[in-house]
Amino acid sequence: MTYKTILIDQLTACYNDKSWFIPLAEMLADLTVKEATTENESKQTIGAILNHLLYWNETWLERFKAGEIVLNHDIDNDETFSLRSDQSDELGWKETLSRLENVFGNWKTVLEESDEAKLTQQLPEYFNAPWWGVVSNLIIHNAYHIGQVMLLKKQIRKGL
């Protein structure tokens, strides 16, 4: 096994390969926009969690493709959990689902096309971590929030 095959396997398990848990694509397949925008007692919504996942996956994908890291220290991580008003309708929900499919698909493609040398490259601007470590942590981050989405979906379906 290589870093590449492990990362692709982990990424696929998060998005569309049912293994230890229900993958995100399957979890969202029957979710309505109303459910995605329903707040729990902590004011969390599935849509906001998905926006957070989109922000970090799209950001790190662009960094990976560019081959360099430009950190934005001005970003407030809480802001990545925002839900835009245009995401509260069917068109906005479909756009969110499409963006998720695209970013996970693009990650898979980029990883498939990468060589091991890139994955072992150290990133001095990011704690000197290797790319494989950064991508692996991003995937763990995805799995964590996918678990939150699953719990929130169950709460919503039970009437909170």
Rank of each mutant, 00 (worst) to 15 (best):
E95D: 13
C14V: 12
H145Q: 09
V149F: 01
L31G: 01
G47N: 02
Y3V: 04
L111S: 07
D86N: 15
E116S: 07
I46E: 00
W60E: 00
V70Q: 12
D74R: 11
N51M: 06
L24Q: 03
H52L: 09
S114I: 05
L53P: 04
R84A: 15
D86P: 07
A129D: 11
H52T: 05
E95W: 08
I49A: 06
V103L: 09
W132L: 00
W131K: 03
L7T: 01
K4Q: 13
A117D: 13
D86K: 11
E116H: 06
V33H: 04
T38R: 07
T5W: 02
I75E: 10
I69A: 06
S114L: 08
T96S: 04
Y126H: 13
F64R: 05
G147W: 03
E95F: 09
K108S: 05
L100G: 05
A36R: 00
H73I: 11
T2Q: 08
A29R: 12
D78I: 07
V103T: 14
L7N: 02
S114E: 05
N142E: 08
T80H: 08
Y15H: 07
N137F: 12
I22R: 08
N77F: 14
K4W: 01
L11T: 03
N102S: 15
Y15C: 03
V149Y: 02
L31D: 01
K18F: 09
W20A: 12
N51E: 05
R84G: 10
L50R: 02
I75F: 02
I46N: 00
K18G: 06
E113S: 15
I8P: 02
F127Y: 11
T5Q: 15
E58D: 08
K153M: 09
Q155N: 11
D9W: 09
V110T: 15
T45D: 06
L61P: 07
P23E: 05
D76L: 10
D89G: 09
E68K: 15
K158N: 14
A25P: 07
G47C: 03
G133Q: 12
